[in-house]
Design a protein around this nucleic acid. Structure first.
Lengths: 153, 153
DNA sequence: CACAATTAGTTGCGTGCGCAACCATTGCGG
DNA sequence: CCGCAATGGTTGCGCACGCAACTAATTGTG
């Protein structure tokens, strides 16, 4: 089966799935970043660190990198920024003194508690443009692609 | 309706659609860039310019920027690189001497003719992990989201 | 117990990006 | 027809990124 008209010899970027997927991801990301960037001054790496630490207190930078699939230097710098802003704090692990356990500060927890509902609501708004059936189909396809590319958690 | 378990109070990044979508787009992009990067020495902006010019001869940088949704400086630099490699050439438009019409050179056309089938085959391989039904559902969902975000061509 | 190999995390460096400022040219209003 | 806003395109600058090299701590092996 073919995704586009068979008569086409060249390549129409507008109908090319990898390109469309990238454009969609950027669009969704911008739709979301209105919240964490403009209202809380976080960029994407910082937001991901906040989201991870917020639900997994005391995790390490290593864990955050694996779980978010960000490069460890990107994680390291995001953590440094968040620490400067007193949103997270670090303590050397007793068991392994190379590791540093990352936790939200009181201010960080306050921001997290305010931020997460807004972000989830934003996701809900986005997905509300799909019918129940469409959402199910879209998620099923996404899971298959993730699995094919070895991306699933 | 809810995408994830209602008992969850925090946010699990792994199940968060915007995050998954970004990860999937990066994964697909990497899966593809094996071809145009390693075998042809193109990066993403260069590949997009090649793809656009290859099917729309004589178009302008402005047109490429709108059609690929890349920033005009990114397009400008990609074009400069491709011109250095003698893959494209530019000529001032007779009608408007601010514009420069972009075309593939003979070498550029040769690369395009070799590149496009490989890239389309790669897309086909990727989508082959979906059943006919899954593909239809996935594309339908994608179209609805694109439309919601005002992304459609 | 010593020494090599591994792992957590940081940093110097080169690169690519977007913003804003900038040319050159064209279109428009008085 | 002149002057000024708008448009196509390029460039200087600051910034974030990934790679590779590094430090510090730990684990494995003889």
């Amino acid at each position: 089966m073919s995704v586009r008209a068979p008569r086409e010899l060249g390549l129409e970027l507008a109908g090319f799935v990898p390109y469309r997927l990238n454009r969609l991801a950027v669009g969704v990301s911008n739709h979301l970043s209105d919240i964490y960037r403009e209202r809380f001054g976080l960029d994407i790496p910082e937001w991901r660190v906040m989201a991870t630490v917020g639900s997994q207190h005391g995790c390490t930078a290593q864990h955050i990198a694996e779980s978010t699939r960000m490069h460890k230097t990107r994680v390291s710098r995001a953590i440094a920024h968040l620490e400067e802003r007193d949103l997270i704090e670090r303590a050397s692990s007793a068991a392994d003194r190379r590791e540093r356990e990352v936790r939200l500060t009181k201010m960080g927890r306050r921001m997290y508690a305010e931020l997460v509902p807004l972000v989830l609501e934003r996701e809900r708004q986005l997905l509300a443009c799909l019918t129940k059936e469409q959402l199910r189909g879209f998620l099923t396809g996404m899971e298959a692609l993730e699995s094919f590319l070895g991306l699933q958690d």
